[in-house]
């Protein structure tokens, strides 16, 4: 039972990660691929934050009378990673918009067909 609970978070993280991975490799739609990437990214965030958690601890804001805090370092890393995820999502979507304007489609299969015709 403790083995099950002890790794439960990590297993769900991996399922989520694989969900995102599946969308990226199996779906030809470019917006869907970016959503897949987003799901993958968020699962990595959950992985890091799960590792930072200490049983019985609290948020890392120092206060009188509290001695156990969760680990602040992964929080900092993930906080900045979330901001970077905004940057990558914005750039990716901007590229999707341009691809749509150039090819008239955001379906990867159709884009390949058009490229081969040229």
């Amino acid at each position: 039972m403790s083995e099950l609970l002890g790794h439960f978070n990590y297993w769900i993280v991996i399922i989520l990660m694989m969900t995102g991975f599946y969308i990226v490799i199996a779906r030809p739609n470019l917006i869907k691929k970016i959503i897949g990437l987003f799901i993958f990214q968020t699962s990595v965030f959950i992985l890091f934050i799960s590792m930072a958690k200490i049983e019985g601890g609290t948020a890392p804001i120092i206060e009188e009378g509290i001695s156990v805090y969760s680990n602040p370092l992964p929080h900092v890393l993930i906080l900045t990673a979330i901001v970077v995820s905004l940057a990558t999502t914005a750039l990716g979507l901007a590229l999707v918009v341009r691809i749509r304007e150039a090819y008239g489609t955001i379906n990867e299969d159709d884009i390949h067909v058009q490229d081969e015709e040229d």
Binding site: I49, I54, T58, A59, Y69, S70, P74, L79
Partner: peptide, 8 residues
């Protein structure tokens, strides 16, 4: 929030 990462 449940995992104590309020800033995140």
């Amino acid at each position: 929030v449940v995992l104590d990462a309020v800033d995140v």
